[in-house]
């Protein structure tokens, strides 16, 4: 069964049609990358999946049921900016989701319950390389670390779908390579369904199991108002999968594409080949 089933969805703002005739089946555990030129409704589509806005026409099913029309814990999100809370420490940001779940009135936990949550958060944070920064505030972190924090914060609540809105767009290329590796690892481990909006085609094909291209098919000035963007291509990304090979080796076989993940392989004459 599809995790997300989008059927003939339209988004309209007044007379302006932004998206039209969007139909998409996203199977559970898929990693869908959405690309397209600026202003083609990619982010509007993501807001739709978040429940921040409702479609003018069409239906969206989440696990076969109509999707709630407001954001909820079944759909996690990481934005490009403002994804983590500036008033909470790294640990506090990750604890927030579980604490809200455990304590409806205070939104805080104490004693044994809190210690358990802290332990779980600490494990996850160590895994993404933030184990030494538990008590830092987000402003004291680099952009890459903030986005890693945002990923952990969203994933600890175990959403059915993780929505990413250009999550790595503001990062340096080197950092972006590292976080791609991490993203892939987290996706494999959690088995979460991911929908990611990105500007970066390489990123889309590197991470996605499916790349969906949004575009305006009619772009003449007199048509712009009444014709919105729609899915122009829906590409299944094929990747050689040899049973028994682990994740890193498989990535290494992909390295004929000059992707940033190659940093992790031992084939490059990289000073850090000791491991």
């Amino acid at each position: 069964m599809s995790a997300l089933s989008i059927k003939n969805v339209w988004i309209e703002y007044g007379a302006q049609v932004v998206l039209e005739r969007v139909s998409l089946e996203i199977e559970a555990g898929a990693f869908v990358a959405i690309v397209g030129p600026s202003g083609c409704g990619k982010t509007s589509f993501l807001r739709l999946l978040l429940g921040q806005e409702s479609p003018a026409r069409g239906t969206i099913l989440l696990d076969g049921k109509p999707m709630p029309s407001e954001p909820g814990p079944d759909r996690g999100v990481v934005f490009q900016r403002y994804s983590v809370f500036p008033h909470l420490t790294v640990l506090g940001n990750v604890l927030l989701g579980p604490e809200l779940e455990a304590s409806p009135i205070l939104g805080r936990t104490f004693g044994k319950c809190r210690r358990q949550l802290v332990e779980r958060a600490r494990v996850l944070l160590t895994e993404v390389g933030l184990g030494d920064s538990l008590d830092k505030y987000p402003t004291q972190l680099s952009g890459g670390m903030q986005q890693r924090l945002a990923l952990v914060q969203a994933l600890i609540r175990q959403p059915r779908v993780l929505l990413l809105d250009e999550p790595f767009g503001a990062l340096d290329p080197g950092i972006r390579g590292e976080i791609h590796v991490l993203m892939k690892k987290l996706w494999k481990e959690t088995g979460v369904t991911i929908v990611m909006v990105t500007h970066d085609l390489r990123e889309a094909f590197l991470l996605g199991t499916r790349v969906v291209v949004f575009d305006r098919l009619r772009n003449r000035p007199e048509e712009k108002q009444r014709y919105g963007a729609t899915i122009s291509q829906n590409i299944e990304v094929h990747r050689r999968r040899v049973p028994g090979q682990d994740f890193h080796e498989r990535i290494a076989e992909d390295s004929d594409r000059d992707d940033p993940v190659a940093v992790e392989t031992t084939r490059r004459d990289d000073p850090a080949t000791t491991h």
Partner: peptide
């Protein structure tokens, strides 16, 4: 939105 997506 983020807070709501964490279940708040």
């Amino acid at each position: 939105v983020k807070a709501q997506s964490l279940g708040a």
